[in-house]
Each structure stands twice: as C-alpha cells, then as structure tokens.
C-alpha cells in the first residue's frame, strides 16, 4: 500500500541516522550495540508499510501516496491516511517527522511556501483538493485551521469572529452576523467570558482565551473539517483542559485532525492516532490500541519515552 520507494529512503539515510543518534541518550547507544535489540537506525532503515488500518468506512478526507518535497528534500514519504467524519484523529511523532507538513497539505496552506511540492492524492469528500478545479480559497473555507500560536487579528473580538463569515458572505444582514458571532463564541466556550467586551481587542485576551477565540473564528466559517496544529503548546494546563474539552464537544459535528506533542493529550481527545517518524506514517490505529498495545517497535519506543 505505502509506496515506500527505495531511492527515497536512501536519499535521507545519512541525515536520518545522524538526527536519530543525536536524539538518543548515551545509555541507549550502549544498550543498542551488542545486545539483540535493534538500534533505531536499523529499524528506520527497514521501515516498511504502515502498520494498522489506514482506511475508514466513512472518510471525510483521505490521503493516498502523498509525498511532500521542500525543494530537493523530501519531508513526507508515501503517506496513506483517512480522516473520518465526526472523529478526532491525532498525529504524533518526534519533531520534524512531517506531521505538521501533512496537516498543512490538507487545506493547502503549503501553497504559500514556493519551494513546497505535493504529489499523490488528497481528497475531500472524494474530490481531489490539489485538482485543477479546486479553489484553495473555497477549500480553506471548508477545511478550517487552528494554529500553534494563538493568532487573533489585531481587531476587536467581534471583528475577529465576523471576519470569515463576512469574507464568504455567509450572512445577509447585521443581525444574522451577530447570531453567527455569538453562536461561534458560545460553541468555542468563550462567550460567557467576553460577552461584555466584544469591542475589546482580541489581542488583549489571555493565551487560552485567544486560542479559543481563534477556534471560534474558525468555526464561524462553518467548516467541515478542523485542522489543529499543536493548539495547546503555548497554553497552561488549565487552558489546555478547556481546549481539550472543547475538542471533545466539537468532534460531534466536525472531523478534526490534531497534531500534538503531548501523548496524554492524544490519548484524551482522539479516537484514532497516527504515529509518524521521519516523514513516514509508521502506525495508525485506535488510540486505545496504539497506547496500550503498539504493534510497531518504533511506536512503542516513542510512547514509552525512549526517544523523541
């Protein structure tokens, strides 16, 4: 299934080996040599097809044989993955493993990087999103994104949420727009905190509030899929808990893909988990299975904190 072509893996062999070595502690190295346990380099070199079920019954988005290149450097190698309706899928893996890159491919945010090239097939409801007829603007209205750092516009809270609907002409008049703004803020669980100061600048909120404002802004466009790129990495545990709760609620209506460095977070919010390593999708499966019974050696090593 995975088109793990040989020349691509040799291409990155040297760089991958060194980066993995550096991420290992001295103890791991000593242990790896001489014993029957394989070293990380050996495992990576022998990476084969993705372990686990990459396909689901009701895919909202699906990727087939996706390769991503930044100029000559390949960042993602033949990834197959489905994102199901009304489900949260979390993507985990060490830094630089390509999980954010894949996420950004899903709403073509990578288009802004001129040296980035995407091959393979990515579909939304069966339509090729990199196809000639697909408009990235429309795609991004359907596939919303929440970023790592809260990035509200330097405008009022109201304007932040109203921007998307206004852009796409989703409301016919002021009162409809007001409704959208209030509903979105309410869905994002921030309305009670800001209802008295909708005219205050969005940048004046706390980090957690800003991130929820960004989520409200995203759902105001009524997207079908929400992509989240480490949405809690800049937040404290209380704000994180609020966002996670919110993700749980949102998963009833949206397909959500979340990139995270926190395995606890992945375990808490997602139904399925995909583990990436050096641009390859190593294992995918139900979250409970991945964390309690990983089938691939690398996954096991990662979730038990042996590297990463």
């Amino acid at each position: 299934m995975t088109s793990n072509n040989s020349d691509a893996s040799t291409n990155t062999d040297t760089s991958s080996a060194s980066s993995v070595t550096s991420s290992l502690g001295p103890l791991d190295l000593e242990k790896g040599q001489g014993t029957k346990e394989q070293s990380i380099e050996e495992i990576v070199a022998s990476l084969g097809d993705t372990v686990g079920k990459t396909r689901v019954d009701n895919p909202k988005m699906s990727a087939t044989g996706v390769d991503v290149f930044y100029a000559d450097k390949q960042a993602i190698f033949g990834v197959d993955l489905d994102i199901a309706n009304n489900e949260v899928i979390s993507m985990i893996g060490p830094s630089g493993c390509g999980k954010s890159t894949l996420l950004r491919c899903l709403n073509r945010m990578n288009d802004t990087i001129p040296i980035c090239k995407v091959t393979g097939e990515l579909t939304l409801d069966g339509e090729d999103i990199y196809g000639r007829d697909t408009d990235p603007v429309l795609l991004r209205a359907r596939v919303g994104m929440v970023f790592q750092k809260p990035n509200p516009f330097p405008k009022s809270i109201y304007e932040n949420v109203a921007y998307g609907p206004r852009l796409h002409g989703l409301s016919r008049n002021k009162s409809e727009l007001d409704d959208i703004v209030i509903t979105s803020l309410r869905k994002a669980g921030i309305f009670e905190e800001v209802k008295d100061r909708l005219d205050a600048p969005g940048t004046g909120l706390s980090g957690g509030q800003q991130q929820r404002l960004c989520i409200a802004r995203t759902i105001a466009c009524s997207p079908e899929v929400i992509l989240m790129d480490e949405p809690c990495s800049a937040l404290d545990p209380i704000a994180t808990a609020k966002i996670e709760e919110l993700i749980n609620e949102l998963s009833e209506n949206y397909a959500i893909a979340i990139v995270t460095h926190s395995m606890q977070q992945a375990a808490r919010v997602s139904q399925r988990t995909a583990y990436f390593h050096l641009g390859k999708l190593v294992e995918v499966g139900h979250t409970a299975d991945i964390f309690t019974n990983p089938r691939h050696e690398l996954t096991e090593k990662y979730i038990t904190g042996r590297f990463g």
């Binding site: 429309l138 919303g144 990035n151 516009f153 466009c221």
Partner: peptide, 12 residues
Amino acid sequence: SIRDAALGLGAS
C-alpha cells in the same frame, strides 16, 4: 501568523 490566520479562514 497573521497571514496564516487570514489564509486559513479562506481569504485570497
């Protein structure tokens, strides 16, 4: 991040 935010919302 401001550009990303606007692009992500579907601004041209």
